[in-house]
Design a protein around this nucleic acid. Structure first.
Lengths: 140, 140, 140, 140
DNA sequence: GTGGTCTAGACCACA
DNA sequence: GTGGTCTAGACCACA
């Protein structure tokens, strides 16, 4: 998968990396169980520091998107993705509200906005999404 | 209008302030031409630093949401809101993409997501939005 | 509060720091809302790198023990401590099992072991412990 | 005895192996004098590296849990288990302290904690434990 | 002054 | 070779 970073962006590099990888998973370019490049190789490939990649991987690990095996390296979580928790829903709303409010101010109708979200959704995930793991100790 | 800040949030206070005011405008609680509290009074009201309010107002002015007059003070832009520019659309997409990608990974269907956006839109703007000013130069 | 580190230990410094601070809270030496030293001052005080302190603080923040305010610095979570979640209970058991198994092998009776735990509990928290926050969005 | 490893755990595999074997002894599933599989066969049985098993066995030998003979192979120490030395007690305390401190912070009462330890003890060793060998030199 | 981010470089445990 | 830990040092956003 190709990682596209904007080093001039206000968005921290490790955050961009996190976004790119999540988008890769959402789009099916990265399948559960699929290996990701090692911290060092990815860092040298995209020309950033090892610690920056590490920070991104650590975050993705904590959120349940990837697994880090001490020696085998990093893989997309083979047990599936984290589910929609209440915490996630809350965060999602607080991220969406400012974007929606701005759209409203600038005169974007609800239909226009929904259309944009619709198209972005399809653009990111042209195929059927991966089933998430059950919320708590499910049979998967 | 009541300003709600979360001082523990990772979102900078001035950004939260910007969001709150934009949401106030989007919801019709702040009408074009309506005066906003002075930098000083708002800062003391919500117990934050002058510079923080100043930074928020400066940003809102640059984006066209408010006008700052030497004597008359601060008002919601009476000429209407900034339009949907290409720049805004680009920024909006780059803000929406990570949110949507995460939703997809966690198994949220397009309909579920659209429903959330729909409900947030109505929650923020229960009334008809304000007409934006025409784009300065072309139909865009 | 006095921080005691063993730089020769196999336990990483940041882990020792985490343990020390949690023990300080458990013992009432660090009260909810009480400020902790800044990343930099603590690092220079105990003669370790700023990043090592940062890692400890970040961990404590994620687990809910402390809050990190961007400018005001670090405080023990004024809303109280994280509750006993299922995840915590599981981790606790997996940490206790090897310790208990070893004690059994070496001939320590259940009463002896319980006595040790009892005494350590009292040694760490001679006073009544702090009430934790309610599991999910409670009234606190 | 069945060995259960979690290859995703942060606990090193050799440590998990050590824990499993000690727990097997504590639970009476592995009796003093009883043979353990050879390094090679265990490694291939559970699909891990020879060196990893070797490291675990070496550690167990040094602590006195097992004996490794050139020809007879590996056996649970027929002379009994290592005793409760001062060194062991110290290590045990330093392992228990962080677990107990965390429990206290999260509002677990002493009785609740003792109950957990009690139940884990019985769960690990439903039968009477093996008598350890006498401490080598003094009543300790 | 405070934490956040990023880099460069080193050593170690693990497998 | 892999990730984990630690250091030293720098620049920046925030308040």
């Amino acid at each position: 998968m190709i990682i596209q970073l904007d080093l001039q962006s206000e968005v921290p590099i490790y955050t961009q990396l996190v976004h790119q990888i999540i988008e890769g998973i959402a789009g099916g370019k990265l399948q559960p169980g699929e290996p990701l490049p090692s911290v060092r190789s990815l860092a040298s490939d995209i020309g950033i520091n090892l610690h920056t990649v590490n920070k991104a991987y650590t975050l993705l690990k904590h959120e349940g998107y990837i697994q880090v095996h001490r020696q085998k390296g990093v893989v997309v979580n083979p047990d599936g993705m984290p589910p929609v928790t209440q915490e996630f829903a809350d965060r999602q709303h607080s991220e969406l509200r400012p974007v929606i409010a701005e759209a409203i101010c600038r005169g974007m109708s609800k239909d226009e906005l929904l259309d944009i979200v619709d198209r972005l959704y399809t653009d990111i995930a042209p195929i059927t999404p991966i089933a998430p793991i059950a919320p708590q100790g499910g049979e998967n």
